Simulated assay, not measured.
Amino acid sequence: MTIYLPIAEIPVAIFTIFAMGLAVGFISGMFGVGGGFLMTPLLIFTGVPAAVAVASVSAHMAASSFSGALSYLRKGLIDLPLSGFLLAGGLTGTAAGVGAFALLRLWGQVDLVIGVAYVVLLTGVGGLMLVESLRFILRAWGGKKTSVRRPGTHGWFLRLPLKVRFRRSRIYVSVIPILAIGLGIGFLGALLGIGGGFLLVPALIYLLRVPTQMSVGTSLVMTLVTMTAATILHAAFNGTVDAVLALILMLGGTVGAQFGARAGQRLKAEYLRLLLALLVLAVGLRVGYDLARPPADPFAITQRGA
């Protein structure tokens, strides 16, 4: 059964899109990563224009993150004060990212920038996470004592001003790096349609030393608010949000996120990080392959305004 997407201007199989939303929603709830780093490439692979994929996935991520965040909130695994500071920077970055997206679309460079950025970010972050996770697991298997530093004991963090104690996450750090992280995540999320969770979760774990489960729940709140804002801004200024596509993805994502959140809460922290690292790295390598391989049709026809 096919359905026509009015903004993307292509017919798609409705059950295929729903299944994609369901699967990515499960991953979103499980890892707290929003799922956009998976959904956006998947839609592009199926023929959806990159500009429409980025904008429409924002709505899907907002819906799936809302469902997952509720599950973590019931478990007390969300640090609301920390989320507030992250959002203060994230909303500013989201507005800047939508503006940059509009400029790149005007210059006709959206596809290239999105593809290259995905390869750099996904392979870099995925590789670092994979090395760290494997090192931790191998030490545990070998019977060696794993040296885990106390939360928030980075020396340069301690020297920064405006420190705040976040009791639920058990950290005492400056709000300056928190605002900077939120700003960067919001910008990349709006520009690339990734939600930023796959970057935010490692940043919270490895930079701020927030516990893994708390990082996932806090990331879901950040993704929910910033992606809602990105959806509104993309619809208002770029006109690239396909409501039909977004609705199908939202339905699948909302259902999948509930099951994913429950599965994520049952996994050990080190195995959760390992699975996330493998997933991020695999998607990055696939995007890089698609960029490097020769196109099926070396010629393209585009319309340019007078």
Rank of each mutant, 00 (worst) to 15 (best):
I10V: 14
P11D: 09
V12G: 02
F15N: 09
T16C: 07
A19S: 15
A19I: 14
M20C: 11
L22Y: 06
A23K: 14
F26G: 08
I27R: 14
V33K: 03
V33P: 12
T40M: 10
P41V: 02
L43D: 06
I44H: 12
F45N: 10
V54E: 06
S56G: 04
S58C: 14
S67G: 09
L70T: 03
S71Q: 11
K75W: 01
I78P: 04
D79T: 03
L82S: 01
F85C: 08
L86R: 07
G93L: 13
A96E: 08
A96S: 13
G99R: 09
G108H: 14
Q109R: 06
L112T: 11
V113S: 02
V113T: 05
G115A: 12
V116K: 00
V116A: 07
V119W: 11
G126V: 00
G126P: 03
L130I: 04
L130N: 05
E132N: 11
E132F: 11
A140S: 08
A140D: 10
G142K: 09
T146F: 11
R150I: 12
L160N: 07
K163A: 12
V164T: 08
R165Y: 10
R167A: 15
R168K: 08
V173I: 12
S174I: 06
I185L: 15
G186C: 12
A190P: 12
L191W: 02
G193A: 02
I194S: 00
G195C: 04
G197D: 00
G197H: 05
L204R: 04
L207D: 00
T212R: 03
T212K: 02
G217A: 08
T218N: 00
S219E: 07
M222C: 10
T226E: 14
T226W: 11
A229K: 09
L233R: 05
H234D: 01
F237P: 09
F237M: 09
N238Y: 02
G239Y: 14
T240E: 04
A246Y: 06
A246V: 03
I248H: 05
L251Q: 06
G252P: 13
G252W: 11
T254H: 13
G264R: 02
A269H: 15
L275V: 07
L279W: 07
G284N: 00
G284P: 01
G284Y: 00
R286S: 13
V287S: 03
G288R: 04
R293G: 04
R293L: 08
R293M: 06
Q303V: 11
Q303N: 13
G305L: 15
A306I: 15
